[in-house]
Amino acid sequence: MAEVLVVVEASQGVAKKVTLEMLTLARTLGDVSAVVLGGSAAALADKLGEFGASKIYAAEGEDLDGYLVAGKATVLAALIQRVSPAAVLLASSQEGKEIAGRVAVKLDNGLLTDVVALDADGVGTQVVFAGSTIVKSKVSKGLPIVTVRPNSLTPTPAPATPSVEQVEVALTDKDKLAKVVERKVEAKGARPELAEASIVVSGGRGVGSADNFKLVEELADLLGGAVGASRAAVDSGFYPHQFQVGQTGKTVSPQLYVALGISGAIQHRAGMQTSKTIIAVNKDAEAPIFELADFGVVGDLFKVVPQAAEEIRKRK
């Protein structure tokens, strides 16, 4: 069977959920090889094997970790040329897209970004224009290089025992132009990552203040979900930008999305439209968010949310 490369995305030595999703998707396309660019492959091997990687290409070292993506793209492009895979999958994250973009230029190859499905013929499905349009497209020059949107499929294990091959990291000065001088990890507690969470609870301008966001966090924690925010809430300084959902923030596609004090502007909907179930709490019965909510509560979030939190605690 043809070899399919999956570029591993990990955070602090742990494979992200999107990596397991890509491995699961890759199994439908061929023999799965995971590619670890930077960090340490040994720490990831068990998990990658559990989800079906029969081989791991490990490219490690300070030359990859200490700079932005150029070097990783150089290593990946060389690997692609050497093994001629049937397809290459990367995560639709900032880094995944950046590596994919550079590799596409290096190999003069097409690429598809943000796909939510990919069939055996290399036809990818994308959801564009604020979730209003579905596009099917394919790479017409070279092999399919595809970035996969998190939460597009359910990862399932298929245990394999991967062999590990060290890959040479041969870089030039051009790969080391953008040097990372500091990496700051901000404590985010036990909450799941926004883009990968299966439950997201978001607050908007209606939440009223940074302090009041504790209410949003409380409900999120009770449900085991991540916290999101509208742009109005972020711009008002209620919550940090990395949690913004929408056109100019994160795109999320959880099982459950709860919108608290969010009007449902088209640019917000762009980031959450494909959620499986949507719940909205808003005191304005005419708020557009109700047009897409499976369950809507017209009322004051400061009454509804504490009551709901209390009720969930009772049931636990």
Binding site: S11, L68, S93, K179, E182, K184, E186
Partner: peptide, 8 residues
Amino acid sequence: DEGYEVVT
């Protein structure tokens, strides 16, 4: 996703 980085 974890925080921020400084790049030169």
